[in-house]
Amino acid sequence: MTYTAWIILTASLVGLSCGIIGVFLILRKTAMMADAISHTVLLGIVVAFIITGEVSGTAMLIGGILAGILTTFLVQGLHALDVQHDAAMGIVFTTLFAIGVILISTSVGNAHLDVQHALMGEITFIPFQMMTLPIIGEIPVATALLLFVLAIVLFFIIAFYKEWKITSFDPALAASLGIPVLFMHYVFMGLVSVTTVASFDAVGAIMVVAMLITPAASAYLWTDKLAVMLVLSGSFGVISAVAGYYVAAWIDTSISGSMAFATGIVFMISFIFSPKHGLISKRVRTVEGA
């Protein structure tokens, strides 16, 4: 594959994985947990680097997952102590992110890990770090990691589809049916964390948040069916990744920033033209009702 094709494929995998996970964030009304986790995984990555000397691979995934679960645990703990949920998220993610920034400045030294890279990523470097896989052949390390994470996400979503659906729409009913709601919540946040970490090095925290929230919010405007929403959200993520790349190439600007901007354009189109919740359809129904 060409250099450009690897970049587009990697970004599309980010859009697909984040788009699917983002649906449940929207339905659970925990969209801003994506912002919190996308920042706090920095701490897990830094600690993993200090221990192993690597910013990729299994150690990075484990560090990010643990940081994400720690974030969820601390937010839940503060909320249980009567701290408002949004305030708890703000306290936890800013504190843990700040610790990660301090560790980068004082402990990491000259390693390829910095705050600018953490926020915006550098997807143009992806094709320079290759590995060889059986059957597939040479593939960028980040792309292989994203393929692996996408497989994990799809497995858990398909295997526990009923449980995710019930716990997202009616946690009380799920508990009455014997479904371990809190355990499923932590498993889900683990999936959010692993998806975020896999996307982190390629596109940075800003695009991860955009891909986790905006495609799912756009899909929510088009359908009330969960399965259709999952397909639409993943598709919107891929469309935003591809369109964002060509916009960035056209005006010579940040690729990740353009992809995040493209998710906003997709949302605006959905907000205006979606047949049920769009501005135009609402205006038509208002006129007809009058």
Rank of each mutant, 00 (worst) to 15 (best):
L113I: 04
E163Q: 11
A87E: 11
H112W: 11
T94V: 10
A144P: 13
L150F: 13
M131E: 03
L113K: 03
T106V: 01
L103Q: 10
H112I: 10
L177M: 00
A144Y: 14
I135N: 05
M89G: 07
T95F: 11
E122N: 15
I102T: 06
I104T: 02
G178H: 14
F183G: 12
I152E: 00
G137K: 08
P171G: 06
M89K: 04
L103R: 00
A159C: 04
V108K: 05
V101T: 04
T132L: 13
A98T: 08
P134I: 04
H117Y: 09
T132F: 14
A118M: 15
D170Y: 12
I123P: 00
Y161W: 05
S168Y: 15
I158G: 03
E163T: 11
A118S: 13
L133F: 10
F125Q: 01
F125K: 08
W164K: 03
I102F: 03
G100K: 06
L78I: 06
P171N: 06
S107E: 10
F155M: 04
L119A: 10
L182V: 05
T167A: 06
M89I: 15
E138W: 12
V101M: 01
A151T: 05
F155H: 09
V101P: 02
I123K: 00
M184H: 04
V101W: 06
A144V: 10
I123F: 10
A118F: 12
I135F: 11
T95M: 12
V181Y: 05
P134G: 13
A118L: 14
M130V: 15
F183D: 03
L150K: 15
T106W: 02
V108D: 02
L146Q: 07
